[in-house]
């Protein structure tokens, strides 16, 4: 009966093409963004997230064409992240057809960009992405990292999530750096600590290797949505199978 928990495939895009890789090594061309977006849409994806990993600033605008093309044919919510530095970048992505824009490194270096963007475009359009890593082996406190997980900030992940909510973020995309690429499951204590602390939805990310991990993210991590890349890209599981597994575990999903 209640609101469905969401399953969100994540697509890495560079220079207008979707790529996939293992642990960021050996990126391979995985195809046309529109074709891939349509396939996930047909499988029942609840939203799609595009992460622009384009290194060269010359190619930055290509993501706008990707979003325009996808948004003309796929009528589910689209989130775009990567390289957002100012409120005007948010505007350009929204005008291209994105529904939400995810802000990561800039939220730390320039928190007022989150505030400006939320007040100009509404909280519903602003996602803050938080990359967090456990401070010690007890996995009970987590530090925020930026620049793709390379730079420590000294910020506590739970406090940072609350601060972002206060500045107007409408959603948190929470990635565990400890788990990203490991396929051993979400960092559940981290997910739960953040999700229980904030009043806005939290998307769990990082570490999914099988369908039980998605179930655990919702049931134990209290995530409102689960994001995964590799289990879908490499054809191990379809979005439909993921939903069936969550449904079988008593989680509300949309079919």
């Amino acid at each position: 009966m209640p609101l469905a928990k969401r399953i969100i495939p994540c697509l890495d895009v560079t220079a207008g093409r979707v790529v996939k890789g293992v642990n960021f090594l050996e990126l391979r061309d995985a195809g046309d963004p529109v074709e891939i977006a349509k396939r996930y849409n047909d499988q029942g994806a609840d939203e799609l997230t595009f992460l622009d990993i384009t290194a060269s600033s010359d190619d930055r605008d290509l993501i706008l064409h990707v979003i325009e093309a996808v948004a003309s044919q796929v009528f589910i919510p689209l989130t775009v992240g990567g390289g957002v530095r100012k409120a005007d970048d948010v505007r350009r992505l929204l005008n291209a057809g994105a529904d939400k824009v995810s802000i990561n490194t800039t939220a730390v270096s320039n928190p007022e960009v989150v505030e400006q963007a939320a007040s100009r475009f509404g909280s519903q359009a602003i996602v803050v992405a938080i990359d967090a890593k456990a401070t010690d082996a007890s996995n009970s406190r987590w530090e925020v990292f930026t620049h793709g997980g390379r730079r420590a900030t000294g910020l506590d992940a739970v406090e940072w999530a609350l601060k972002m909510q206060q500045l107007g973020a409408g959603e948190i995309l929470l990635t565990s750096m400890d788990r990203d690429g490991t396929k051993i499951g979400f960092n559940l204590p981290l997910t739960r600590a953040v999700s229980d602390a904030v009043d806005i939805p939290v998307i769990a990310s990082g570490g999914v290797g099988n369908l039980q991990h998605l179930v655990d993210g919702v049931k134990q991590g209290h995530a409102d949505a689960v994001l995964a890349a590799s289990i879908f890209h490499f054809g191990e599981y379809s979005v439909r199978q993921a939903k069936e597994a969550m449904h079988a575990a008593g989680i509300e999903v949309r079919f």
């Binding site: 009043d199 209290h222 409102d224």
Partner: peptide, 22 residues
Amino acid sequence: KPENMIDAQGQKLKVPHMGWNE
């Protein structure tokens, strides 16, 4: 209303109301 935002399992319901509902 924040005081109403609890589901049948006692878990907190988030605002914005975001996602697919019936």
